Computed example of a mutant assay.
Amino acid sequence: MSCPQCFSGHKNPDTPKGRVEKIHGLSTYIAEPAEGTPVKGIVIIVPDAFGWEFVNNRILADHYASAGDFRVYLPDFMNGCAAPVWMMESMGILTGPGHMLSKPYHLVCTAYSFITFLTLNRGSVTWPRITSFFKAVRENEGASLPIGTAGFCWGGKHVVNLADDAIKPSNSRPLVDAVFTAHPSNLAIPGEIEKVVKPISLAVGDKDFVLNLKGVEDIKKIWAGKPDVDTEVKIYEGAGHGFGARADPNTKEAVRQAGEAETQAVDWFKKQFTKVVY
């Protein structure tokens, strides 16, 4: 389950620079480092509700690739059923002042799309699709490279579950070597948090009502009891849900925090990838 905050935010005005290919059965946006630069690892993004075509998610992939020298995959894990981008505008109208005459219209449209998204992207449908893709990458181009994953909002729950290292591909290597998640939604605490055994980094705002500060403190306590697992939690003051993927490009503080979350992810993958030898 997601909440209305998972469908709010802002669109990035920049233009993505990567390419689209069919990878292991899924349409995938691919971003790579500059030509001639050795690839240090593969990062697979499990995006927010707006999916693989959302410009913000593609630009994020571009930034990871250029800053970390990673090959970045942003697959269509939602099989063409991502939330429509217009929902962000509708959510802004519903939660903002004015627009009283148009609010019923936006409420009906948003409710319909909200229910449709949740139905078509329920865990029993998307989890097998996600794990199949990760297995294929590990068994093929990622057999001798570190693999990291970054998950946002809807995707955050999935990458936390990938950190339990419960699924093994045919070469018996882990699906992922490192995990980063920003403002994940619908986490089962303590259940899913206790199962984490792979290095994991969390970015969350102190104004996030999806994963609130009590939940964050619970996570920190659980991970503190796992001395053999490399973990980190960074709290961004004043940031709300979605800040790492859907920051307001016209707000200086929001842009700064989104950039810091990007740096947190890239630095985390760099640190963890240096420990991996296959």
Rank of each mutant, 00 (worst) to 15 (best):
V229H: 11
D206H: 03
G9L: 02
L213Y: 05
S113M: 11
M100P: 02
I45V: 07
D164L: 09
P249V: 05
A111E: 05
F180V: 15
T28M: 11
L74P: 03
I147K: 07
M100C: 07
G68M: 14
G242A: 06
H106G: 04
D208E: 11
V233P: 03
N57T: 09
I235V: 15
L120D: 07
S132M: 11
A49H: 00
A258D: 14
D230K: 14
I189V: 12
W127Q: 08
G9P: 10
Y236T: 08
P184F: 05
Q5C: 14
T119W: 09
D218L: 11
K40A: 11
F54Q: 07
A247T: 01
W223G: 05
E262F: 10
I44D: 02
Q5A: 13
N140L: 01
F70S: 12
K214G: 01
G240R: 07
K220C: 02
I42F: 06
S102F: 06
V255M: 10
A49R: 07
P4H: 00
C153Y: 10
K234T: 10
Y236L: 06
G238C: 11
V20T: 05
I30S: 05
E32K: 09
A261T: 03
E21T: 04
E21G: 09
K168D: 07
L211I: 14
G123Y: 12
A254P: 00
T274I: 10
R122F: 06
F269N: 01
A163W: 13
T181D: 04
T37D: 08
I235Y: 01
A261C: 13
C6K: 07
Q257H: 00
D69I: 07
K103V: 00
L120R: 09
N171V: 07
G242R: 03
G51R: 03
I23S: 03
G238K: 06
D218M: 13
E260R: 11
L162D: 05
G240D: 12
D218F: 12
N161H: 02
L26R: 00
H241R: 03
G18E: 07
E32R: 01
G238R: 00
